[in-house]
Amino acid sequence: MRMEDLTWPEFDRIKGKVKAVILPVGSVEAHGRHLPLGTDVFAPLELARRVEEKVKEKGSEVLVLPPVWYGHSFVLNTYPGTINVRPESLRMYVGDILSELAAEGFERIVLLNGHGGNIYPLIEAAEDVAELYPDLEVFLINWWMDFREEILSVCSSQGHAGEDETSVVLAIREDLVKMAEARGRRVKKKVRIIRKDIGRELFPDGVNDDPSGATAEKGEAILETVSIRIAEIILGGE
């Protein structure tokens, strides 16, 4: 069920009945010339929807929260349309959300993250709140990283706006994908370089992979496999 669809009495009644709450977190940023700026939110939102279905099939419920759209995106901020939020701002904002959920009595919260730049602020936000609520468990799930093995059984490669991410968006919103513009290459550096506009080198045209092999069928396979795994984690508490 979606939190924003509930009245407050309905929300109050279901609080003690859900297995977990899921907070999708993403970013608004450049994803090549072929993918929409909302890619990093579209993916976790769709995964959350599928996880909800799979958990319900097992006789349990999860509550899906409205997503956090904006994230920390220093590297891609060199491209138009990227909205970069400072890490401390994201940490505080998500931390406040987690605190409110914990105060409502929820003890299992899933941060379903779709963007790499969010990882450290989300860890810190969860640690801050966990210090205050000893019974709270926060699961940070970075879908493209934590299930890399499963994804690479479907795609030949992974990368920002690459084959895996492009396939997922094709499966979710094919109408928003410009496959005629889907091109890119893998760029690697031996050490992390932090410099203004470094994204032009690391992500030429906002891509760091070859997306040309992406298909909606591959995306569907990724979404299905990953959502099954997340549902298992929620139900099993692993």
Rank of each mutant, 00 (worst) to 15 (best):
Y79V: 00
I222V: 12
K56Y: 03
V187E: 04
L35E: 05
G105V: 09
T78R: 04
A48E: 08
V68T: 11
K58M: 10
R91A: 11
R13Y: 14
W8D: 10
L176I: 05
V75D: 01
P134A: 13
Y79G: 01
A102M: 03
D12H: 15
A221I: 14
P66E: 09
L98F: 11
L176V: 07
V64N: 04
Y70Q: 10
H115F: 03
V207L: 00
A103D: 08
S156M: 06
E104P: 06
S73I: 01
R186I: 11
G237R: 04
A231V: 01
V51P: 01
E52Q: 09
G16P: 08
G219M: 05
P80M: 10
V85A: 06
K17T: 14
K54G: 06
G162F: 01
N113D: 12
D96H: 12
I172H: 06
P204A: 04
K218F: 01
A125R: 00
E174Y: 14
H160S: 05
D205W: 00
N142L: 09
K190R: 13
E201Q: 07
H31C: 06
E224C: 07
R183D: 09
Q158D: 01
V110G: 06
E46A: 04
A48T: 09
V226S: 00
R50H: 08
E100I: 15
I141L: 07
E61L: 13
L63I: 02
N142Q: 12
I22E: 13
E201A: 08
L152G: 09
G159D: 01
K188T: 12
S156T: 15
R229D: 00
E232Y: 14
D12P: 03
R195N: 03
S212L: 11
G38Y: 02
F147I: 12
W144M: 09
L170P: 00
R148C: 08
P80K: 06
A180S: 15
R50E: 12
T225Y: 04
L111S: 07
I194R: 06
G237T: 04
L23T: 04
I22D: 10
D164W: 07
R50K: 10
P44G: 03
R86Q: 10
M3I: 15
V129S: 02
K190Y: 12
P36W: 07
V177Q: 06
I194T: 11
K58F: 11
V25K: 11
L176D: 07
E61K: 14
V64M: 02
M92G: 09
D164G: 11
K189C: 12
G213H: 05
V154K: 02
E100W: 07
A126E: 08
E150R: 07
L37D: 00
S167Q: 12
R173Q: 10
C155A: 06
F147E: 01
R229L: 12
L98G: 04
A180R: 15
L63H: 00
P66G: 08
E201C: 04
N118D: 10
I141G: 03
I233G: 07
E232A: 11
E201R: 02
K189R: 14
E53K: 15
S167M: 11
E104Y: 09
E238W: 09
N113H: 05
M3V: 13
R200V: 11
P80I: 05
A216C: 09
S27G: 06
T225Q: 09
D146I: 07
V51N: 03
E107F: 10
P9M: 05
A130S: 14
Q158T: 15
H115M: 03
R229T: 07
L90R: 01
L223A: 06
I172E: 05
E107K: 13
L23W: 03
